[in-house]
Design a protein around this nucleic acid. Structure first.
Lengths: 222, 222
DNA sequence: CCCGGTGGCTTACAAAGTAAGCTAGGTGTA
DNA sequence: TACACCTAGCTTACTTTGTAAGCCACCGGG
């Protein structure tokens, strides 16, 4: 007899979705096989009929995540395509703070390769040399990824919380110890209307400007 | 009687250094309190006389790491100062693949704040507005950090190994599936003399160019 | 009607963090 | 000198987690 009536049967897919939901809700550290089982109304060991082990669950999360990234489209020009791709990646990673962790421990999965291939393709069709495309991807990826990692480690979600937190941190140290930090805190971050996310876009535009210039120069730069 | 004669007494500092050495040698996952104890010729529980718990060990590793970063100096101009700082940070993180992990889980520690403050100071003294300095740091940090995270997850150390690995990955998929990736693999990455690290510098120069331009425009950009 | 396979369950063990309390050896003080 | 005390390291034991091994009930086909 089923533990709970009307429960749909388990499947690898349902396991992974539940894992993502659990990690979203309670954090990646709370994702244990036992809790995951509970979530699905099942004992921990039952999960092993559908996934080989916990590593496979984590790899599966990486796949789910990559599937959420919009691949670039060719109908808007490379610059807009890259911008959208970067913005979407950042938004996805912000939605799932466990994203960077699972991505950085997964090897080159098909989803990852597919994603990469489509970005390279978009750039190549817009006139980027192989080398310049490599440079562009490396730069954009590092930026987005690094941003996301730092964002994921910040313990706040809204600008208000940021201001509040900044204030709390700043009470912990004297303005003599870290004068420049103090200045930045009071004159920028705690100002009403300050939006941390704006910085992401600013940096992204700077990077895109640089790439546009490098593309115009026709070479690989250097 | 000491387990091993002539052993110097334990201390928080010795514990942290041993932890760093162990993580360097066997990876962060191998850093357990028991192994760390062994490394020091001591039982696991003895460590707790010097550190509160494992979290404190990890936080301590973050401090050690930050101490390895060269702070920027004022005698070379902001651009060269930022370049050196970024290059040094990248080198440090490459030397310690566990770096990104411990950094991203540690809150704003004094070492972190000090580091940040000195970078802001260097920029401010070179004419950066508060806002532009914030943008610059955010961009540079994200780039270096994102690069480091990705580099840390790569399972090779030398260019030769990269070429070899790329070849191995590319045997796993058909050129029809990922045509652009295949092209990049054969025409760029597996070419003799290809140096992945060069891409870091290329991106860094692009970013510095952009910042220089933004500084010249005198405003905060936007 | 039996039979094998499948999906979930129970049990059990190893690794890891760490709480609690023990003890020996050195130290300051009467 | 003797004694009380402090400290660093030790022992034991509990909890959480991943997962190996094997059990059993059900279900569809011969």
């Amino acid at each position: 007899m089923p533990t709970r009536a009307g429960r749909s049967p388990l499947s690898r897919d349902r396991v992974l979705r539940a894992a993502a939901a659990l990690a979203d809700r309670d954090g990646l550290a709370a994702l244990t096989m036992r809790k995951l089982g509970q979530e699905l109304g099942v004992e921990a060991m039952s999960l092993y009929k559908h996934v080989a082990n916990k590593d496979e669950v984590l790899d599966g999360l990486a796949e789910l995540l990559l599937a959420e990234f919009d691949p670039p489209t060719d109908d808007v020009g490379w610059r807009e395509a890259m911008r959208r791709h970067a913005v979407s990646a950042r938004a996805t990673l912000a939605r799932h703070p466990w994203g960077p962790v699972v991505l950085s421990r997964s090897g080159p999965s098909p989803a990852m390769l597919r994603n990469l291939d489509s970005v390279i393709g978009s750039l190549r069709r817009s006139g980027f040399s192989v080398e310049l495309a490599a440079h562009a991807i490396s730069l954009l990826d590092s930026y987005v990824y690094g941003w996301a990692v730092q964002e994921a480690s910040l313990p706040f979600d809204t600008p208000d919380e940021l201001a509040e937190l900044t204030g709390a941190i700043m009470e912990g140290f004297s303005a003599e110890e870290y004068p420049h930090l103090a200045e930045m805190g009071t004159e920028l971050i705690m100002r009403p209307g300050y939006d941390h996310g704006r910085q992401f876009e600013w940096g992204l535009e700077l990077v895109l400007d640089g790439l546009e210039r490098a593309l115009g120069e026709g070479g690989s730069g250097g």
